[in-house]
C-alpha cells in the first residue's frame, strides 16, 4: 500500500430519490483507491451498483440520481463537488471512459476519424491536420488495420471489435491518467475479447495509466487486474490483491461466485454450486448483512447487524462476521 493513489474514493453514496421522499442508495458508502499505474477490478452482478460507481466517478449521472455523500479525491480536488465546468475539462482529458456497447457510444452519423479528432480539438489548441495525424497514429497504436482508410469509415461499417478499438482510441487520444472501462468486452466474442484485453494491457504498459475495470466476468479479472473489489447490492464486500482473492476468497458471496462458474481449463467435477435465491431489491434491503438471505453461514447476528469492512491482514478486506478458518 505504499504506492501513490491516483484516486481515493471515500464514503461515496449515490442515491435515487423516490416519489414518497425516500431515497434508494444505488451506491452505498463505497471506499475505493486506485493506485497509479495499476488495474483495479470492480466485479459484481447486474444491479449491484458497479456501473453506477463508474458513472459517479465520471459525474455522468442522469438526474434525479445524484451523489449525496462522500468524496472523490483526484490531484487534490474533490470530483464529487467540482463545478460541472471544471469537471468537463477533466472528463475525457485526464479521466476517460469506455463503454460496453461501442455502437451506442459512437455517433452513427459522423465518421469515426472525425469523432476522435473532435476530442483533441475540444481540449487542445492544434490545427485540424495535426489532430488528424495524431488520430491516425492512435488508430495504428490500437491495432486498427489501414488507419487512413478507417478514418473515413462510419461506425456501422466496422465490426464490433473494430468499433471497440475506435472507442479505446478515443479514450486514449488525450493520454488520460485514469481510464474507466465499463464491461468493455462483454458485447464481444471471446476471440475479440482476448485481443482487446491484450491491447489494454499493452497500452497501460506504454502509457502508465490506471484502469478501473468494471466487469461481471471473473475470467477477465484474472486476466487483467492487479487488485479486485467485489460488489454486492451497492456495497464492496471484499477487496484484495488478485492472487490473494482467487486463492483465499473469504466472503461467502465471492466463494459462491467462484464455485458457480464452469471452467474452461482444469478439473471440473460434479454439479455446479448455486447461490440460492436472488439479489434483494435496492428498495428492500435486509436489516443486517445484505447477503444474509442467500448465505449458507448466516447467523442471528447477520440478520440483525450490518457487518463493516474489516481488514483480515495484508490489506485483504471483507464485509463479513464469520471468523476465518485457515
Amino acid at each position: 500500500m505504499s504506492e501513490e493513489n491516483l484516486i481515493t474514493v471515500s464514503g461515496l453514496r449515490t442515491v435515487l430519490p423516490s416519489k414518497e421522499g425516500r431515497e434508494v442508495s444505488l451506491v452505498d458508502g463505497i471506499d475505493l483507491t486506485i493506485p497509479g499505474g495499476k488495474t483495479v477490478g470492480l466485479v459484481g452482478e447486474s444491479g449491484c451498483g458497479k456501473s453506477m460507481t463508474a458513472r459517479s466517478l465520471m459525474r455522468l449521472l442522469d438526474a434525479p440520481i445524484y451523489i449525496k455523500e462522500g468524496t472523490i479525491q483526484f490531484h487534490g480536488q474533490n470530483l464529487a463537488s467540482l463545478p460541472e465546468k471544471e469537471m468537463r475539462s477533466i472528463r475525457g482529458h485526464q479521466i476517460s471512459m469506455i463503454f460496453q456497447e461501442p455502437m451506442t457510444a459512437l455517433n452513427p452519423s459522423i465518421t469515426v476519424g472525425k469523432q476522435v479528432r473532435e476530442a483533441i480539438l475540444l481540449h487542445e489548441k492544434v490545427t485540424r491536420r495535426e489532430a488528424k495525424e495524431r488520430v491516425i497514429q492512435m488508430f495504428r497504436n490500437v491495432g486498427i488495420p489501414e488507419p487512413e482508410l478507417r478514418y473515413r469509415s462510419y461506425p456501422h461499417q466496422l465490426s464490433g471489435g473494430l468499433r471497440q478499438r475506435i472507442c479505446i482510441a478515443m479514450a486514449m487520444i488525450l493520454e488520460p491518467e485514469f481510464l474507466i472501462a465499463d464491461e468493455p468486452t462483454t458485447a464481444l466474442d471471446v476471440t475479440v475479447e482476448a485481443q482487446i484485453l491484450a491491447l489494454m494491457k499493452q497500452l497501460q504498459g506504454s502509457h502508465k495509466m490506471s484502469i478501473l475495470m468494471i466487469t461481471h466476468n471473473l475470467g477477465v479479472v484474472a486476466d487483467i487486474c492487479d487488485e479486485v473489489n467485489v460488489m454486492y447490492a451497492g456495497q464492496i464486500v471484499e477487496h484484495a490483491d488478485k492472487a490473494e482473492l482467487f486463492h483465499h476468497p473469504l466472503h461467502p458471496y465471492t466463494l459462491g461466485l467462484m464455485k458457480a462458474i464452469p471452467r474452461v481449463r482444469g478439473k471440473m467435477e460434479g454439479e455446479l454450486y448455486t447461490i440460492r435465491g436472488t439479489v434483494p431489491s435496492m428498495a428492500q434491503m435486509p436489516a443486517g448483512c445484505r447477503f444474509c438471505d442467500r448465505c449458507p453461514y448466516a447467523t442471528e447476528q447477520c440478520r440483525r447487524e450490518r457487518p463493516g469492512l474489516r481488514d483480515v491482514g495484508g490489506g485483504h478486506l471483507v464485509r463479513c462476521f464469520r471468523e476465518v478458518i485457515e
Binding site: V190, T191, A194, L218, G219, A222, F246, R263
Partner: peptide, 15 residues
C-alpha cells in the same frame, strides 16, 4: 484450439 484458448478462465495462475 484458438477459440478455447481465447476464453478467459477465472484463475490467475492459468491465464
Amino acid at each position: 484450439r484458438m477459440l478455447i484458448d481465447s476464453a478467459p478462465d477465472p484463475d490467475p495462475d492459468v491465464s
